[in-house]
Nucleic acid binder design. Structure first.
Length: 427
RNA sequence: GUCCCCAUCGUCUAGAGGCCUAGGACAAGGGCCUUUCGAGCCCUCGGCACCGGUUCGAAUCCGGUUGGGGACGCCA
């Protein structure tokens, strides 16, 4: 049976690159009906933090992945020592004065069979002797990795390209320990637009940040899937179940991919449109609370739902929703300078007054009646609809763009509409 | 510096010798629609890095050049 693993170290948040490695491992396990193992590489005691571990696990779950088993290297220290002692006894390693155990690297030509890259050749004579156990008794990465992958029965090691040069060192260890090597698959790295690795400096990279910015996990997963892999048939949108059916690690391509926020945004917008608006309310409500737009103890779910529906087809992130729909939640609005300059630069007191009068007299207040009344007024004033639509929109929302004006007025309510327009009537 | 990986539109990709005067998506530009638009619809722009081979035929195979990336820790 196929057994794969994702091995994060809790010295930082789960970032885009790690998430994709995790995803490809998980996907491969699902596709092949195998097992997916999580191994926490927490041997660097100084840098490993509980908060990072929690964040990593939470992010993996948020993305929709689960694991069959979880191991902590910090709990397997005696195992590594055992194997180090074995190598010492067999004279394949030696000990330094400071107790560190060092592996003797013999000159060999090593051929790696990589599922993605094909054959890669190394000459180990350029590799120095490798520390196995540090002076403080903890194992080094390569050693712990090999001991764990071998004893845990990992059949396929799927990891980032940056580990290619670790592979010959590890193969030497498999051989010295008498283990069979697993299959290797090195997936390409995700680069930033500026070139080089993705980093904090070059934009948001942690999964939790994307979560906070209002990306949907399904959308993020879909985007990650499209980096170095393709479902074929010119498809861009694919859900995880379908991906499981189509995915094979052999189809992952060798070229590194540049992370493109624009495309992520587009995919996210597609998922927002498909999403049940009620679920969007669940996601957006905490953001509204955080912003102080609504109060936790006094939630009007119905109202939020209506506003969400108004924006669902025109936003690409939920953070954008907060930004664009703010006027539905604020008492006072201040028009954007450019909007004011463009549409409220002349006196419209007469037109506004007439509009308010007619609004006030409406027997039934709904988008249809509002529109009818509005169009009648425009006709009576001998104006183009747009000549009044824009100023009213800016007065009500502060913005030049947004949902349809009449729906917007309806959900804003008669009171607030009148109050906001009145501000622009001079007497 | 040494070793390794990679190379199709700006970006993500389809393409496994003739189906390719290279297809799709995002972005960009233009147009249409409309009460606005950053929404929708339509159109356009734009690429096989370069040089040599192999072959009747190469984006696809081989070699080199250039460019990009990664690794060389008692970090993982």
């Amino acid at each position: 049976m196929i057994k794969v693993r994702f091995a994060p170290s809790p010295t930082g948040f789960l970032h885009i690159g790690g998430a994709r490695t995790c995803l490809f491992n998980w996907l491969y396990a699902k596709a092949k009906n195998g097992k997916f193992i999580l191994r926490i590489e927490d041997t660097d005691i100084r840098r490993s933090k509980k908060e990072f571990l929690d964040e990593i696990l939470e992010s993996i779950k948020w993305l929709g992945m689960d694991w069959d088993e979880i191991y902590f290297q910090s709990q397997r220290l005696s195992l590594y020592k055992e194997f180090a002692e074995k190598l010492l006894r067999e004279n394949k390693a030696y000990q330094e004065e400071n107790k560190a155990v060092v592996f003797k690297v013999e000159p060999h030509k090593i051929k790696i069979k990589d599922l993605i890259h094909g054959e890669i050749e190394f000459d180990t004579s350029v590799i120095k002797d490798q520390v196995l156990i540090k002076a403080d008794g903890t194992p080094t990465y390569n050693f712990a990795c090999v001991v764990d992958d071998a004893t845990l029965g990992i059949t396929h090691v799927i990891r980032g390209d940056d580990h290619i040069s670790n592979t010959p060192k590890q193969i030497l260890l498999y051989q010295a320990l008498g283990f069979l090597s697993p299959e290797f698959a090195h997936i390409p790295l995700i680069l930033s637009k500026e070139g080089g690795r993705l980093s904090k400096r070059k934009g948001a990279t942690s999964i939790s940040e994307f979560r906070q910015m209002g990306y949907l996990p399904e959308a993020l997963v879909n985007y990650l899937l499209l980096l170095s892999w393709s479902p074929g048939e010119n498809r861009e949108l694919i859900d995880i179940e379908e991906a499981i059916n189509l995915f094979d690690i052999k189809d992952v391509n060798k070229t590194s991919a540049v992370f493109d926020m624009d495309k992520l945004n587009w995919i996210n917008s597609q998922y927002i449109r498909k999403q049940d608006p009620n679920e969007l309310v669940d996601i957006v409500t905490p953001l509204l609370i955080e912003k102080g737009f609504v109060k936790r103890e006094n939630l009007n779910r119905e109202y939020i739902l209506n506003v969400v529906k108004l924006f669902q087809n025109r936003i690409s992130t939920l953070a954008e929703f907060i930004e664009w729909a703010d006027f539905f939640f604020k008492d006072e609005i201040e028009p954007e300078p450019q909007a004011k300059e463009k549409f409220l630069n002349k006196d419209l007191s007469k037109e506004f007054s007439l509009f308010l009068n007619r609004l006030a007299q409406l027997k039934e207040f709904n988008p249809q009646t509002i529109e009818m009344e509005f169009r009648q007024l425009v006709k009576d004033l001998n104006l183009e609809a747009r000549q009044l639509v824009h100023p009213v929109r800016v007065a009500l929302t502060g913005k030049t763009v947004g949902p349809g004006l009449f729906e917007l007025i309806y959900y804003l309510g008669k009171e607030r509409t009148i109050q906001r327009i009145k501000k622009w009537i001079k007497r």
